[in-house]
Computed example of a mutant assay.
Amino acid sequence: MATGDSQQSHPDRAQIKTLTRYTDLANRQALYHVLRLARSCGVFDVLERGPCTVETLATSCDVDLATMRALVYLLCHLEVVEQYGDDIALAAVMRLRSDMNPDFGQTQWERLVGPAGGECVVRKCGTLEQAQRTVRGRMFEREWTLTPSALELARVLEMGSQRRGLEILDWGCGTGIWGLTLAHRDVQANVTMVDWLEPIETVKGMAESIGIAERVTCVAGKFSEVDLPEERFDLVLLANHLHLMSPSSWAPLLERIGTFLKVGGEVAVVDIFEGQQEGDLSRNVLALELSLEHPEFQICPPTMLQEQLIANRFGKPRFSHLEVPPYLFGVMLAAKEPA
């Protein structure tokens, strides 16, 4: 039986919990540098050519064998590589790396808060327009990851069944993932894509690749200068814009979009909204990233958007989460009412 003195010699549960959390935090910091080390010494580049043994990997990367064994163990823990017998191979998630984002955002965060090992300083923001171009450009690079959300949007809108044969306008379409997905789901729909020249060229290629180019009209130019027919469209898609705008600028944007809609036509505002617990971490990381880019950027408050749509003479808005990874997006739908 333990005596009172021996009981006091052991840390209590609160101390153990605190120490465990400290160790966990230190390990998380170490794992970040594990990824950096693996990238810098060429581990991922070697494995992209095919599986190999730890010995071959160490030789190819000019790293001693003991260091490589420890590194591979930690990379397996991170689930970025996998071990099959004696062979090491890239995990499927690493196939999602792109030439534009090979470091999973490291370069972006160093731009915002400074490089690892240096002084962490929140940099001064540029103009709102400069920040918008920066963030939208980065969004284009990874917009292909939103395919599940775009497919879920098509399901929620019941494209091809409840909504069929629509004239769709995708305003600020980016690479086209949202509007092209809707048009692909509804084989009778036509879609007009509006954005700068660079993303529009991407849209044209995507439309060709999925076989709907004959139903896609592309318009390149500044949003303020694009000339489109009034009351032409049944559905206007506004995706991933409001969190890059001051709420004070929502009203004129919705006013202009309303001129393109037929009476009874609908605006579908797709944006990042709170409410999906699975996406809480990703959403708050994004919220920090946005606020560092420009103080006017913020996650879209749904009640504020509802009020603005009604103020812009749209009918009662309806909202639905897009309940698929990354669990960030929702759609607010409202119909244009008669003047």
Rank of each mutant, 00 (worst) to 15 (best):
V122P: 02
L261F: 11
A58E: 03
W171N: 02
G275E: 01
C61W: 01
S98K: 15
G330Q: 04
P317M: 05
L292T: 02
W171M: 15
V80L: 05
T23W: 04
A2V: 14
A92G: 08
S98L: 01
E129W: 08
M100V: 12
N101W: 05
T3R: 14
G126P: 00
R163V: 00
S246L: 08
R95F: 03
V216D: 00
V216R: 10
K17Y: 08
F223E: 10
R142S: 12
D280I: 09
Q276P: 01
K17P: 00
P326I: 00
E208V: 11
D86G: 13
E337C: 15
V216F: 05
P247F: 05
E158M: 06
T20G: 15
Y73I: 13
M245P: 02
Q15M: 10
W144G: 03
L290A: 02
K336W: 02
G279S: 04
G265S: 03
C125A: 14
N27A: 11
L153H: 04
D45W: 03
K124W: 02
S60R: 12
E307K: 13
I257C: 13
L254W: 06
C76G: 09
L288N: 14
V34T: 13
T67H: 13
G117S: 10
R28E: 13
L75C: 09
G172S: 07
A339G: 12
T181K: 02
A220D: 01
I16H: 14
S40D: 09
K262H: 04
H77Y: 04
S60G: 05
L57I: 08
G265Q: 02
M206Y: 14
G264T: 06
Y73P: 00
L244M: 10
A239K: 11
G105I: 03
E337R: 10
E274L: 09
H294L: 04
L305A: 10
P325T: 06
V43M: 08
K336Q: 05
K262W: 05
D5P: 06
L19M: 14
C52K: 04
L180V: 09
P302F: 00
P148T: 06
A183M: 05
E55Q: 15
Q83C: 10
E208A: 11
Y73T: 14
G176L: 00
C120T: 14
C76I: 09
R13N: 11
V81R: 09
G330L: 06
L37T: 14
V63L: 10
L25F: 13
T59D: 14
T303Q: 11
L35H: 10
I168N: 01
G50D: 03
L146N: 13
E337V: 12
N284K: 10
R232E: 15
L197N: 06
E143L: 01
D24M: 09
L78Q: 15
R111P: 00
G117E: 07
T145W: 08
T202V: 13
M68H: 08
E208M: 15
M94C: 12
L261P: 01
L237P: 00
E82V: 12
A335M: 02
E214F: 08
V93L: 07
P51G: 02
L286T: 10
N101G: 07
S320M: 03
G205M: 09
L96G: 12
Q29P: 00
Q306H: 13
